[in-house]
Design a protein around this nucleic acid. Structure first.
Lengths: 337, 337
DNA sequence: TGTTTTTGCTAAAACGTTTTATTAATATTG
DNA sequence: CAATATTAATAAAACGTTTTAGCAAAAACA
């Protein structure tokens, strides 16, 4: 086993000082007036022995880790997995690595995660925030760590945001159903106070109100399957006049589709369906399901770009940015008369 | 801004030595014979000021980072996303964090990733290895870093493995089709030399040979959509006698389903379908698709357990372990006559 | 009592960098 | 020619830990 190679072993081998080696390695040769000859000597040697600086030592000294913390609700949801992929890819190309975690919308777990991330001296954060984490996020900001929030809004938090036009998207989706002639349009959503859910609900309510229709709102909790399906099923049975549904998320819609199938209802003849958040399944399903598609690529790109630019200039002075991206409405068979 | 709090500031505040504080903090008070009184004093103070050790400094000194590197093919594939979630969860509960990356089966990128991970002093690795990375993986092992390989096998590599019974699963799937009376059974796979793909192919070939049938093997490359579909489509058109297909992966099957639909063929009347790797879509599709389900939870759990146990005892002496988990065969409508 | 053991604690080195302050040598100026 | 400015390089401190080796006092022993 060869002796551990370090900046000081290089200095010794070359008969020069550690400082000089460090300057050369950090591209400060010009600024610090190291002679070209010496620069070349160092570079050649470093090349030859394939020296790689120890990033831990560097981080300890500089306080920068070149790590970005990514905190999403659940990395196994297609939406977040897709975003994670894009973010990782771009971060990697900029010399950053990603540490990720899933919050499962649990505030306690999220707080612990933030502790651990801080401890690892993460340089910046991309967070899909659960409710109740406002203080901690503000603390990060106060600590000079850039934060970009994703997917949802947090009141009274000084951070950059990337969201989509939730209200308007659902408004338009409901309008589409109205135009197609549906009269009793239901909205099935999570029992959650998260901003994106509230906004989607508002969009529905606005469209229904404008059209002078009766709102049918059902809030369910998502448990990954059976119970959610049951709740939707009994809701539909108790309100047989419902002729169409807007689902607030794609997994709720999947549960809904199962419920509808079990009830023996046909889409769209008996009941029309529109879902927020597109999903491969919706394209393939028979009938195919109309949906509101979020631009995952653009969301991820915006988020990582905003974070990287903050990291570059440590420009916490710049005013906070809100970016609202546009969804696209994909009309398929499930909503046409 | 309060002065940065460290082990030495604590020592100073308490009028004792750094060493003592460190010993107490690391639970070595007993061993090092620090008096109970002093231990309590330190602990109380640490509690009061909510001191958290700087993990960078600790890592620099100890060479341990408490970070696990997770390298998968593509974090946005449901299979890998599901595994990532489980691994992250368990690692987190054991005080480890996960850094992840996607290789996209690119050897060059993977090598770079391993460089970066080494640089970050990652303690252990869970890798879904692309072909051609054998040397680098062996180097990790030689370096004393535990490695667990996932999903596929690498010849001549000293590492723990977690895989599934690929050969046998496909053998049984083909047998199932044979028993259902299908005669011209095709196998559509990736043009890849990866072990899991080769094993799946072998299983198909064995079943076909045993039954004295003609093999129909089509290797395609996966491009995420259109071209793959076209290739499958033209393959089916050129071989109209084919009455059933086994797909080697779920995304190939999705492309296949699109091709089949476009050709106007009905499942299973005109053509039966079985896919490797279950997918939510298969359960919901009309007709529902028979599939070979991988136990993602068990795979992830095995992998992280094996890695954690190696990390605990740094027991590189222990012989390498191969764990082969069993898939389950889910018969649905697409393969029944 | 004098010697050895045990107890309780600590000094200082090491991990591998970055960066500030400084020095010595050379070049430029008045 | 002496004084000043520039060039080229370096010593040493700092980042915050862990850990080896050792020391002084108290206790146990002969």
């Amino acid at each position: 086993m060869s002796k551990r190679i370090s900046i000081s072993s290089i200095a010794k081998d070359l008969g020069i000082s550690i400082t000089t080696v460090s300057f050369v390695l950090n591209g400060k040769a010009q600024e610090k007036r190291i002679s070209d000859k010496l620069v070349k000597k160092v570079m050649d040697y470093v090349e030859k022995i394939d020296y790689k600086p120890n990033s831990l030592a560097r981080s300890l000294r500089t306080g920068k880790s070149n790590i970005i913390g990514l905190i999403v609700e659940d990395i196994s949801y297609p939406f977040f997995a897709a975003i994670a992929k894009e973010i990782e890819d771009k971060a990697y190309r900029n010399g950053y690595k990603i540490i990720y975690s899933s919050t499962e919308n649990n505030v306690g777990k999220t707080k612990e995660l933030l502790e651990m991330y801080k401890d690892k001296h993460v340089d910046g954060y991309i967070i899909v925030p659960p409710e109740g984490i406002e203080q901690e996020v503000n603390a990060l900001y106060a600590d000079g760590k850039p934060v970009v929030l994703l997917d949802r809004y947090l009141d009274g938090v000084e951070a950059d945001y990337v969201t989509v036009n939730n209200e308007d998207s659902v408004y338009k989706a409901a309008q589409h159903l109205i135009q197609e002639g549906f009269k009793n349009i239901a909205f099935i959503t999570l029992n959650s106070l998260q901003s994106q859910m509230q906004d989607r609900l508002s969009g529905y309510e606005r469209a229904i109100k404008e059209a002078g229709l009766i709102p049918y709102i059902k809030e369910v909790s998502y448990d990954g399957g059976e119970r959610t399906k049951k709740h939707i099923s009994s809701f539909l049975q108790r309100n047989r006049e419902i002729d169409s549904i807007v689902f607030a998320t794609n997994y709720l819609c999947v549960s809904g589709l199962k419920a509808i199938k079990e009830l023996g209802l046909r889409i769209p003849e008996h009941i029309a369906v529109v879902s927020f958040d597109d999903y491969e399944l919706f394209e393939m399903y028979a009938p195919s399901i109309t949906s509101i598609a979020q631009p995952t690529g653009a969301i991820a790109e915006q988020a990582i770009n905003m974070l990287l630019s903050r990291l570059k200039k440590s420009s916490l002075d710049k005013k906070k940015q809100d970016v609202v991206l546009q969804t696209s409405f994909i009309v398929r068979e499930s909503s046409k008369t």
